[in-house]
C-alpha cells in the first residue's frame, strides 16, 4: 500500500460513505418512484399531471444542478426559518449528506417512477383478473399480487438506475461531502499525485459497478424463477 502513501484507510472510509449514501438514496428514491408511478397511473387528472411534471423535470435537469438547488436552496430556506424563530440567527447550513441523499433520491425516483409505471402496466391483465376472482381486490390485491409482480418487470431497468445512482454520488463531493471522490481530491492536494489517486477512485467505482452488475444478474434470475420457460 506504498503507492497510496497512507491514504488507503481514508479512501476505504470514503468508499463506505459512497455506498451508504447510495443505499439511503435508493431506499428513499424507491418511495418517490412508487408514489410517482401511482400518481401517473391514477384516475385523478391532477395527480397524473403532477407525476408527469416530476419525471419530466428530473430527467431533463442536470443531476449536478439538482444537487446544487437542494443544497443551497435548503440552506436559504432553513436560514429563513431559523431567523423567524431567532431573529439574529446566522446561516443554518444543510448538512451536505442530507442534501445529497435527498437530491439523489429525487433523481432516482424520477427515473424509477417511469420504470415502475411501465412495470405495473406490463403485468398481464389475466393475472390481475385471476387475483380478483379469488377475492384479492383493492389494497390486498395491490400488496400481495400487483406490487410483487411489478418487481419482476421493473428490476432490469431499476438495476441500471441504481448503477447510475452509485456513480452520481460522486457529485455530492461538489457540496463538500467526504465520500470517495472528495477524499481522493484531498489526497491529491497533499501528495501532488492526482493521476494516481483519481485512478484509484475510478477503480473503486469500477469495482462497485462490477459487484452491482453481478448482484443484479443474480437477482434478475431469482425474480424470474416462477416464469415459464420455453
Amino acid at each position: 500500500m506504498d503507492i497510496l502513501q497512507g491514504w488507503g484507510e481514508a479512501i476505504a472510509r470514503g468508499a463506505a460513505v459512497t455506498v451508504a449514501v447510495a443505499l439511503m438514496a435508493l431506499a428513499l428514491g424507491l418511495v418517490w418512484g412508487v408514489l410517482g408511478a401511482l400518481a401517473r397511473l391514477s384516475s385523478s387528472r391532477i395527480l397524473r399531471r403532477l407525476g408527469t411534471i416530476y419525471t419530466t423535470v428530473i430527467r431533463g435537469t442536470p443531476e449536478l444542478l439538482i444537487i446544487l438547488i437542494v443544497y443551497f436552496g435548503g440552506t436559504v430556506a432553513l436560514t429563513a426559518l431559523a431567523r423567524k424563530i431567532v431573529p439574529d440567527a446566522g446561516y443554518v447550513e444543510v448538512p451536505s449528506i442530507a442534501a445529497g441523499v435527498f437530491a439523489l433520491s429525487l433523481i432516482f425516483g424520477g427515473y424509477a417512477a417511469e420504470t415502475i409505471r411501465g412495470a405495473f402496466q406490463a403485468i398481464p391483465r389475466g393475472q390481475i383478473e385471476a387475483a380478483e376472482a379469488f377475492g384479492l381486490t383493492g389494497w390486498v390485491g395491490f400488496v400481495h399480487i400487483r406490487f410483487p409482480l411489478m418487481w419482476r418487470y421493473a428490476l432490469p431497468a431499476l438495476g441500471n438506475n441504481w448503477i447510475s445512482l452509485v456513480k452520481d454520488t460522486s457529485l455530492i463531493s461538489v457540496v463538500g461531502l467526504e465520500e470517495l471522490m472528495r477524499v481522493s481530491a484531498m489526497a491529491t492536494s497533499v501528495t501532488r499525485e492526482p493521476f494516481i489517486f483519481y485512478l484509484v477512485a475510478a477503480l473503486v467505482y469500477l469495482a462497485l459497478t462490477f459487484v452491482n452488475t453481478t448482484l443484479l444478474g443474480w437477482m434478475e434470475a431469482r425474480s424470474q424463477r416462477g416464469e415459464r420457460r420455453g
Binding site: K167, D168, T169, S170, L171, S173, M181, A185, T188, R192, E193, P194, F195, I196, Y198, L199, A201, A202, Y205, L206, T209, F210
Partner: peptide, 23 residues
C-alpha cells in the same frame, strides 16, 4: 467501454484535467 461506462464522468474529468498534468 467498460471503463468509461463504469466510472463517474466527474472522475474522468478530474483524471484528465488534474491527472495528466502530473506527467
Amino acid at each position: 467501454i467498460y471503463f468509461f461506462r463504469g466510472t463517474p464522468l466527474l472522475v474522468q474529468i478530474f483524471l484528465f484535467y488534474y491527472g495528466l498534468a502530473q506527467f
